[in-house]
Structures are given as structure tokens and as C-alpha cells.
Design a protein around this nucleic acid. Structure first.
Lengths: 207, 207
DNA sequence: TAAATTAACATACAAATGTATGGTATTTAT
DNA sequence: ATAAATACCATACATTTGTATGTTAATTTA
């Protein structure tokens, strides 16, 4: 069994996870000190030593940024879920993170991309189900047939994207839901990003 | 359009990708120099400058290990798929990588885990479909109810795992497939690993 | 052919970085 | 009540690291 971390040590470890998984590169002592407002790197140095002693990280001596995570749950890193998104009819999107999902370490988020939990079954014919986590990349241009996340009157939807002469059509795979046609100059419409992947954790019975 | 890299520049970029994606942390100039047998960091320094000029990487000045990849295909790094695995009836597993799947950069493999592409529909009630990539962790002990990959007479199956008094039972979600009961001392049976996640890339229409 | 790019080397230097040592005060176990 | 762990600070130091500046030679491009 692993020893308990103190609150401060926990927050430092969380910062490490955040940087390593999020930014992709471990921070330096100075980075951490700056983030927590420490006037000295030695403070961080000691925290690292304590955290390592408790077995949560592994340091490579002398190496800059030589910090490795050795979490038991190495395979699962908590990640914020920014909101829920309707695959069927629009659902209100939440302003802040509503939850965290245990994403495997394999799932390091690409820059600026984010997670949304899907609600509803309008995409079930595309094999996306209620509860699945979609990985959304906001930096890609939508192409016809791709699944996109779009904002429509302050709600978010996940649907297939089709460009038409008179505007944009959003289509559900599930025929129960009728396609939505958006006029070219409709003001409160915006494609948030492209769904680049779907992830589902297999902890419990899927459902 | 991006300018062509020279052979040496290419090999250096490959090393960078390898380190960043594989080891998780970008190398220092000294690391690269050592790897290629350069007596001097300045050589690497110049190569970096050239590669950056051609737009393949982005350097953060003064920052140690401050190298970012700016590849177009940044989001997709080829990964070997070790074989196909039957969700329904056993399918022969392939000895070597049969294919590569474009996993997003977000998908950096956890140590020792591997990918299998699912064939068949016996897990469709667990929302795993033909074509999905399952992430398999061979370092976890199977618990009742978890989905495992198992070898059975030189074929591999993906099924739910249940420990019984008289042996091990492998169950499909799909009732069309009957549970398989394996005797305790059955020689050619082995649980390869636990399915820790399912990933599906959204490039084309799923199917 | 002349100019630019490529590919390697050497040296030098400031800043960044990890580390060691010691100090103070508070909190937590024993 | 005494010891241990925690949480912060300060200073000092050796390496590491990125960078700048030259030099040489081969290759490619204009």
C-alpha cells in the first residue's frame, strides 16, 4: 500500500500530472516553484523528495525535468470533462468542468483539444453511445461527413456535418432525429470542433 | 507546402518523434548529440535550426527540452496492431504486426500494453464493434466481469472473464455465442491481458 | 562559376537546473 | 514531552543546457 500524500503534496503531484499529460513535458523545479508562488526551488526539491519517498514519482538524478510518474493507476489519469453534449436533441453546455473522467495514459490530450461526455442516442448508428467520451479537436476545419461538435443557441450538439449551398446541415445517424439545417448567416451557430476520437473506459460493465 | 528535409534532418526528426512520443519527454541537445555520435551540441543546434526553419518543429527559446512537433499529421502516429482478435468465435492470431492503426498523438501507449483490432460482433452489447481498437494491458490481474483477451489453442478471443470453482468461464455479451468453460488445468489457455479501453478513430464513417 | 546550403567541428558564456546544506516554525506521531 | 515529519526560506555550487560565434569542407543551387 502506498503512503498517503499530504494536501500540498497532492496538489503538486496533480500539477505534475497536468504538465506531463497535458503539456507533454515535465516541469522544472523552477516551473513548479513559480506556479505555487514559492520563492525557492529548494522547497519544491523537498516536496519532490517526499513524494518520491512515498512512491508516486521517480526522479532521474541530475536530469533536467527528469520526473516520471509511477502511479499505480498509471493507466488512468483524471481529466476534466468540460460538459455534456447532446447527441440527440440539444443539451445545455456547462461553463466549467462538470466532472473528471479516468482517461488512460495512452490518452494524452492533443493541444487545445478537450473532452465531452455524450448524452443521448442519436449517434448510436455511428457506434457512439450515451456515456462515451468524445475527444474534440477545435483546430481542424470540418469536412463533409465528419462528426462535429457545434454550438446552437447556447446548447451543444454532436452530429455529422454537411455543407450545402444554402447553409450547413447537421445530421444524426439515428433516423429518429430529423436533420437540422442552419442558414449561412445564422448568428448563434458555430462549429466548435471535430470529433477525432471516441474513448470508453472498461472499468465496469459498459452502459 | 513544407520544404523537404534532408536525410540527416529526417533521421533527427524521427529521433525527436521517437523520444517525445515514446519516452514522453523531449531530448536535450546533448542527448541528440550523444545518440548520433556528435562531439558537439552545436551541430545538433544547427540541425534544429534548419528543421525549425522548414517548419517541422517549434523551439521555445532558452527552455530546456523546449521542442514541439508541428507536424500536420501531428494527431496521428502509426502504431502497430499486433493482430486481430475474435469477439465472437476464436480467430487465429497473427504472429507479427499485421497492420498499423493511426492512433492520435493523444494515444501514447502505456508501457507494455498493446493494441488489437476487434473482429466480430459478440461484444456488440458491450458496445465494442468490429474495427474498434482495444487497448490491452497484460500487467493486470483479471477480475470477475472484466473483459479480457485470452489465448485458446493458438487463437485469441475477447470476452468477459468469470472465475468459477471448476475453472474459468469466458462469456460473450452477445447471447448468440455460448459461454466457454475452461478447465483449471487446460494447458493451452492463457489470459493475455485486460481490456482497459476502447478507442475508435473518427476518420471515416464508422463501420 | 559564385553563392547558398549542408554537415561537421571547437570554444566560450550566461542562464537554467538540480543538488546540498542549514535555518525556522508548525504540525503530527509516539 | 520528545521526536519526526511537514512546510517554507536562504545561500552556495557544479553541471546541464541553450546559444552565439568562428572555422573547415563538401554539396547543392542559382
Amino acid at each position: 500500500m502506498q503512503k498517503e500524500l499530504t494536501e500540498i503534496q497532492k496538489s503538486i503531484l496533480n500539477f505534475l500530472i497536468d504538465q506531463i499529460k497535458g503539456k507533454g513535458i515535465p516541469p522544472t523545479l523552477a516551473d513548479v516553484a513559480k506556479h505555487f508562488g514559492y520563492k525557492n526551488r529548494a522547497t519544491v526539491q523537498q516536496h519532490f523528495k517526499a513524494i518520491e519517498k512515498k512512491g508516486y514519482i521517480k526522479k532521474s538524478p541530475k536530469l533536467s525535468r527528469g520526473i516520471e510518474l509511477t502511479l499505480e493507476e498509471k493507466f488512468f489519469v483524471p481529466r476534466p470533462v468540460l460538459g455534456e453534449v447532446a447527441a440527440g436533441n440539444p443539451l445545455t453546455i456547462y461553463p466549467d468542468a462538470i466532472d473528471t473522467v479516468e482517461l488512460p495514459t495512452i490518452a494524452r490530450m492533443p493541444k487545445d483539444s478537450f473532452l465531452l461526455r455524450v448524452k443521448g442516442d442519436s449517434l448510436k448508428d455511428a457506434y457512439i453511445f450515451s456515456g462515451d467520451i468524445v475527444i474534440v479537436n477545435p483546430n481542424l476545419e470540418p469536412k463533409n461527413g465528419q462528426i462535429v461538435v457545434a454550438i446552437l443557441d447556447d446548447a451543444a450538439v454532436v452530429k455529422r456535418f454537411y455543407k450545402k449551398r444554402n447553409g450547413i446541415e447537421l445530421v444524426s445517424e439515428n433516423p429518429e432525429y430529423k436533420p437540422i439545417l442552419i442558414d449561412k448567416k445564422y448568428p448563434s451557430f458555430k462549429v466548435v470542433g471535430i470529433v477525432v476520437g471516441v474513448y470508453r473506459s472498461m472499468g465496469k460493465k459498459a452502459g
